Amino acid sequence: MGFADRRYTVNVSILHTDRPLLDRPAAVAANGFSNIEMWWPWPDEPTPARSELDALRGAIEDAGVQLTGLNFYAGRLPGPDRGALSVPGAESERFRANVEVAAGFAGSLGCGALNAVYGNRVEGVEPGAQDALALENLAYAARAADRVGAVLLVEALNRVESPRYPLLSAEAAVAVVDRVNSLTGLGNARFLMDLYHLGVNGADVPAVIDRYAGVTGHVQIADAPGRGAPGTGTLPLGAWLDRLAGAGYEGLVGLEYKRGKEAGEFGWLAR
């Protein structure tokens, strides 16, 4: 299977960032794609004004694209933060305040996946206390996602860019998924398999695919080094996606890479 034969969703928080947020859905449509995903668009505001939510909803609907994935509030992303839900104090409270807002926005657009970024380890706080807080908040988010017909995604990041993030392997992320499902009984927590992060970590990606394809709710790609488009680095993304398809994964593939200097942002598809 070639790259052009797959179903993609374009992450407009890392692509088309040369345009204002409200212009990005139309830019995705102009490139021939029908799906978009995004990080929480207001990194400093977990509960934006209704007018801001309505404007973004209108831009998505007017462009005729489908919102397929949305992050819950995760702090300054991109930036120094890697989520808020396991961070005691104000950040955890901001995450909780955001849950119903994000779920409601996703539900209003038929978005079926909400990503909850775990958060960094905090100096002076016991890891066990952070994990207990995380489980409580993830269960809260899973219940909100379930009410709008969405899955809750948990992902592993890479240790090079996120050394204080505790979920640095597929095994660690899936263990959290299992704990959330056990607590809620809903079964809607799923693994977000980001092939870029796994590749940077030097994981045995084929083994990860074989073991965890069945609990994977979404897949994202970028090449490494550099987090560029497929073909700009050394990761065998095509082979990994073929293996995922062979393992039964039929979902979308998120394009979560940085724009390069080559003409356009999607020339690799034509190649």
Rank of each mutant, 00 (worst) to 15 (best):
L15D: 03
H16C: 14
L22R: 05
A27N: 03
F33G: 06
F33Q: 12
S34R: 01
N35G: 15
E45K: 00
T47D: 08
P48V: 05
A55Y: 03
L56T: 10
D62W: 07
G69Q: 00
G69M: 12
G75Y: 07
G79P: 09
G79N: 03
G89H: 01
G89A: 01
G89M: 04
E91C: 12
S92H: 13
R94Y: 15
R94W: 14
V99H: 07
V101W: 09
F105A: 02
F105H: 08
V117L: 14
E126H: 14
G128F: 12
A132S: 04
Y140L: 14
R143G: 15
E155Y: 06
L157S: 08
P163W: 00
Y165P: 10
S169Y: 06
V174L: 05
S182Y: 14
L183N: 10
R190Q: 01
H197Q: 11
G199H: 03
A207S: 05
Y212V: 02
A213K: 05
A213H: 06
G214K: 07
P225I: 07
P225G: 13
G226E: 03
G228H: 08
A229F: 01
D242C: 00
R243S: 03
G246E: 02
L252F: 11
L252C: 08
L255N: 10
K258E: 13
K258P: 14
W268I: 05
